[in-house]
Amino acid sequence: MRIKKDMKLADVIQLNYMLIPVIHRFGINLGFGDKTVADVCKENEVDLNFFLQLVNAYHDKDYFPKEELQTIPVKNIVNYLKMTHSSYLNDKLSEIEQKIISLQSEDTEDQKYILLIRNFFEGYKSELTEHIMHEENVVFPYVLAVEEIIKNQNFTERNREIFESFSIGKYEEGHNDVEEKLMDLKTIMIKYLTPPANSTLYHTIIQDLFKLEEDLNYHSRIEDKVLTPKVILMEKSICNLI
């Protein structure tokens, strides 16, 4: 079922609880009573159209409104991506890490294997952090500058510098798959390890990894299929400007 603007947001969440972290990234907190999607968006100054497209894309795997999403201003897309990044860096990664550490502190002979998992996850964490930092420090400032140039139909000195120092093609080329190691970790935990004494916690970690992978997939999809093609078009129109 497609999510629409006059549905109650509470009903939307009942429909799919996986949307809780998504709406949170828009700065929307739970406790919205009977307010509709449109009401809540207005109250929180969230672009209703963007919200609906994105929530529906998360909700239905077969729905990906590429064209509609590409009409959203770069600034809004970048804001959303940044919120998602910070939820990875500040919450999700450390939550999983904490759980792995708790596994380790159990007094069992599984110590050695858990240390392996922990080291592997640490490696993954720094890989993902590096990936995100590059986007935040290089890619996003670049695309925002591109949008500003188009808006003003004019270069400031600073924007020209940024524009000439990077291109979205470079991003597209180097934008690697951040899910690979995560998939390996899941495989190892499912196929090749016997669960330690605290198997409940072990299972929770695997479920967390599945959720994180799915979330990352959606995230990268926005970067690759919405942001990148949009900026390619903008770059072309700037070249015409010059």
């Binding site: 392996l116 390996d184 190892i188």
Partner: peptide, 17 residues
């Protein structure tokens, strides 16, 4: 065969076995 792609994943497998 193993379903593991990354070098670090393969390393963990090698240690486990």
């Amino acid at each position: 065969k193993l379903g593991i792609k990354s070098v670090s994943g393969l390393t963990v497998y090698a240690i486990l076995h």
